[in-house]
Nucleic acid binder design. Structure first.
Length: 399
DNA sequence: TTAGGGTTAG
C-alpha cells in the first residue's frame, strides 16, 4: 500500500465500517491535509533534486546533498533517498572516489547501511579506486547506521583485501563504535593498538573517549584519559572541557564545574551553548533557581544561541518551581524565533502551569501564538472552556 | 572521510 493510500485509509477506515453516514474526524482530516502537503513538497524536492543533478556544477555542492537527504531521512522517506542517490550513479563522477564516498556517507547518515555497503562493493565496477578514504567511509556508515557489530570485522579483514593501511581516522571511527556500544575498555585498547602501529592519537581520539567516560558515569577513568591526553601535549579544546563539565555535573560537583569554566576561560577558551546547557542542567537538578538564572543570564550575554536543549531543561524546571512568569517569557522568545523547534509537550506544560496559577490570559496568549502559522505543529490546548469557567468560579469562590 | 546533549519541519 502506498503511503498516500495508507493515509486515506487511516482517515476513512472507521466511517466505512460503520452503518451511519460517513463522518470525518476533523482532527484526522487536518492531519491528513498536513501529511499530503508534506508529501507533495517532498516529492517536488526529489524531482527538483534529480533534475538539478544533471548539472555538473550542482553535483559539486555537497551541502545540498546533505540537507536534502537529511530532510528526507527525518521524514522517513527512505525510498526517495534511494531514488535520488541511485540516480547519481549514472554520472561519470561515480568513478571518482570522493563522489562514491559521499554516497556511502549519505546512506550511512540515513541509517541505510545496506545501500551504503552496496555502493562500496560496486566501486570496482565503476572503475573507482578504493583507498583508505572509502574504507573509512564504510566504517563511518556502520557507525552512523548503528551497525556497530560489523565494524570490528571490517576493520580486521578489509585492509588486507583492499591493500589499504588504516589511518588515524579509521581508528577514531572504530573507537567511536566501541564507545557507542558501551565497550569503553575495548575503545581504549584501540588507542594502544594505534600507537603500536605508529599512529598518534589526536584530539578527536581523546574527545571521543572523554565524552564516553565522563558521560557514562566513569569520571575517574575520564580523568585518566585526560591525563594521557595531556601527556601527549595535546591541548584540550572546548569540546574536551565540555565532556569533563558533563562529568562533573553528573557527579553533582557543581562548585568544581563552575571552577572548571573559570579555568578554561583563563586559558582563553569561551564557554559555548553546550557548556551553558550543562551548567544550567546541573543547577536545575540541584533545584537551585538562583544559579540557573545566573547562568542563563551569562548565556544571554554571550554570543551563543540558546537552543532546544536550553529550553527543554529550563521550562519543566520553572514549571516545577512555579516561576511561570519567566517560563511565559521564555515561551514567547521561542515563538519569536521562527527556526527553533522545541518539544510540544514542554510548551503544553507551561500552558497547563499558567492555567493552574490562574494566569489565564497568558495561557491563552501562548495557545494563540501556538496556532499561528509556523507553530501549529505544537497543537497547544487550553483545558475546555467549561473547565476554565469552573476554574474561574472556584477561584472566585476561594478569593 | 572521523568527536556534542534529553531530539519533531520547512
Amino acid at each position: 500500500m502506498s503511503s498516500l493510500s495508507r493515509l486515506i485509509h487511516r482517515t476513512f477506515a472507521t466511517s466505512f465500517s460503520s452503518s451511519t453516514p460517513p463522518q470525518l474526524n476533523p482532527n484526522a482530516v487536518r492531519s491528513l491535509s498536513n501529511d499530503l502537503y508534506k508529501e507533495r513538497n517532498l516529492k517536488k524536492l526529489v524531482e527538483k533534486f534529480k533534475k538539478s543533478s544533471e548539472s555538473d556544477r550542482f553535483r559539486t555542492k555537497t551541502g545540498v546533498y546533505e540537507s536534502t537527504v537529511r530532510r528526507l531521512a527525518s521524514a522517513k522517506r527512505f525510498r526517495w533517498i534511494e531514488e535520488i542517490l541511485e540516480d547519481q550513479k549514472k554520472y561519470r563522477d561515480i568513478s571518482k572516489e570522493g563522489f562514491a564516498v559521499r554516497l556511502i556517507s549519505l546512506y550511512g547518515k540515513s541509517g541505510m547501511f545496506d545501500q551504503a555497503s552496496k555502493v562500496f562493493d560496486e566501486m570496482p565496477d565503476y572503475k573507482c579506486d578504493r583507498t583508505v578514504k572509502s574504507f573509512n567511509a564504510l566504517l563511518g556508515a556502520c557507525v552512523n547506521s548503528r551497525k556497530f557489530d560489523k565494524v570490528d570485522g571490517f576493520f580486521r579483514e578489509l585492509p588486507e583485501t583492499l591493500a589499504v593501511k588504516p589511518d588515524v581516522v579509521s581508528y577514531n571511527t572504530v573507537i567511536k563504535a566501541f564507545c557507542e556500544m558501551g565497550s569503553l575498555d575495548s575503545a581504549v585498547s584501540m588507542v594502544d593498538e594505534m600507537e603500536k602501529n605508529g599512529l598518534e592519537p589526536d584530539l578527536i581520539t581523546f574527545n571521543t573517549l572523554l565524552d564516553a567516560f565522563y558521560g557514562n558515569d566513569r569520571f575517574s577513568d575520564g580523568e585518566k584519559i585526560w591525563a594521557r591526553m595531556e601527556k601527549k601535549s595535546l591541548v584540550p579544546d572546548i569540546r574536551s572541557y565540555n565532556a569533563k563539565l558533563v562529568g562533573l555535573v553528573s557527579e553533582k560537583k557543581m562548585l568544581e564545574a563552575v571552577e572548571l569554566v573559570r579555568e578554561f576561560e583563563a586559558e582563553g577558551l569561551k564557554p559555548d551553548v553546550f557548556s551553558y546547557n550543562a551548567l544550567i542542567k546541573g543547577f536545575c537538578e540541584d533545584g537551585n533557581l538562583e544559579e540557573v538564572k545566573r547562568w542563563y543570564g551569562e548565556l544571554e550575554k554571550s554570543e551563543c544561541v540558546r537552543d532546544r536543549a536550553t529550553y527543554g531543561t529550563l521550562l519543566p524546571f520553572l514549571c516545577e518551581k512555579g516561576d511561570l512568569d519567566w517560563a511565559f517569557k521564555l515561551c514567547k522568545d521561542i515563538f519569536e524565533r521562527r527556526s527553533l523547534v522545541v518539544n510540544g509537550p514542554v510548551l503544553q506544560l507551561v500552558v497547563d502551569g499558567l492555567v493552574k496559577e490562574s494566569k489565564i490570559e497568558e495561557a491563552k496568549k501562548l495557545v494563540q501564538m501556538g496556532k499561528s502559522n509556523n507553530y501549529s505543529r505544537y497543537k497547544l490546548q487550553l483545558p475546555s472552556d467549561k473547565c476554565l469557567d469552573d476554574y474561574g468560579t472556584s477561584q472566585n469562590r476561594n478569593s
